[in-house]
Simulated assay, not measured.
Amino acid sequence: MKQKFIVRDSFWELFPETEIAVLLADDVSNRSYENMPKDLLKQANSRAIKWVEEDPISANPVIKDWRTAYQRFKTKKGARCAVENLLKRAKQQNGVKSINPVVDIYNSVSLEWAFPVAGEDRDFLKGDLELTIAQGGEIFVPISEERTEEALTGEVVYKDSESIISRCWAWRDSARVQVTEDTTNLVFYMENINPERKAEHKQAIQLLQSRLKQYLSIETTFGLITKQQPEITL
């Protein structure tokens, strides 16, 4: 059976207006910076500041949206949406640094459009990818760490049949499925929780697709997950 990306009813009960853009790419090469602008991340960090001009950072609308969302489910203390971390670093002149070509591209889009963007290595997913509410105790190993964590009861998580893929919705990703230079088959997802940002969400998706194609010759297929269309085939 083919793998699916499924958003469960328990999530829609909390966030019925969320839209999740999903991009799939096969047989990619993630090793060459030859066609990428050397200042891609520098420019993206600079452009990101427009989203967080107010102090404190929580006063900015895109941050407020996610802070409010995170108050609706159980989170680990201090957990914030990944896009808040990127924008905060940009504001503090400590912008995100290069990791590998694919990650740099989706981070640049996240910075410029203020949407969280995740990329995962599909070859390491076990079974379906699900966005759901944790029962509690599900295993998670964060990127760059060896210690094992457990999800909280009531926490919004991405998971597969083996373990947690991302804790606290869009906070931290799993080391098991992280994108590396050896990654060849990818799934990207970008969440929008504010219905008033639909047009911006669409533009961010198009920018991600165009940069992947222009800089790395990566062709992507697109799907949109909504409450009315809660799953797609990977």
Rank of each mutant, 00 (worst) to 15 (best):
T183Q: 04
G137Y: 11
K159G: 08
L87G: 07
I133D: 03
E155F: 07
E181K: 12
L87E: 03
D123P: 00
A90L: 10
S58A: 11
D160S: 05
Q178K: 10
V96L: 07
G137L: 03
I143W: 03
E196Q: 07
V103Y: 01
Q43S: 13
I20E: 07
K159V: 11
I57G: 11
E155N: 05
A170Q: 13
E146H: 10
L208P: 04
W51L: 11
T153W: 06
R47F: 10
S29G: 13
L23R: 01
N194C: 12
E19W: 05
F5M: 13
E34M: 13
W171P: 10
A114V: 04
E149A: 05
W169L: 15
K97V: 05
Y33E: 14
K126D: 08
Y189A: 04
I143A: 06
R47Y: 12
F124Q: 05
I165C: 09
D39P: 12
G127F: 03
Y158G: 01
S110Q: 06
A82L: 14
F222A: 00
V103N: 06
V62L: 14
D121I: 02
S217A: 11
S108C: 02
N100Q: 06
E53I: 11
S108R: 00
Q206G: 02
A59I: 04
D173Y: 06
S58E: 15
W113G: 00
L86N: 07
T75I: 14
D121Q: 12
D104N: 02
A151C: 09
V156C: 07
Q206V: 11
F11G: 04
Y215I: 09
T226K: 04
V177W: 08
K77Y: 08
L208M: 02
Q3W: 12
Y215N: 04
K76G: 07
I49M: 13
F140T: 02
E145Q: 15
T220M: 01
P37N: 08
E191S: 09
Q93K: 14
Q206K: 11
E17M: 13
L14F: 05
R211F: 02
L152Q: 08
R31Y: 12
T221F: 04
F115P: 13
T148D: 05
P61G: 08
N30R: 01
Q3V: 08
Q228A: 14
L208E: 05
A118D: 06
D182V: 06
V62H: 10
K88D: 07
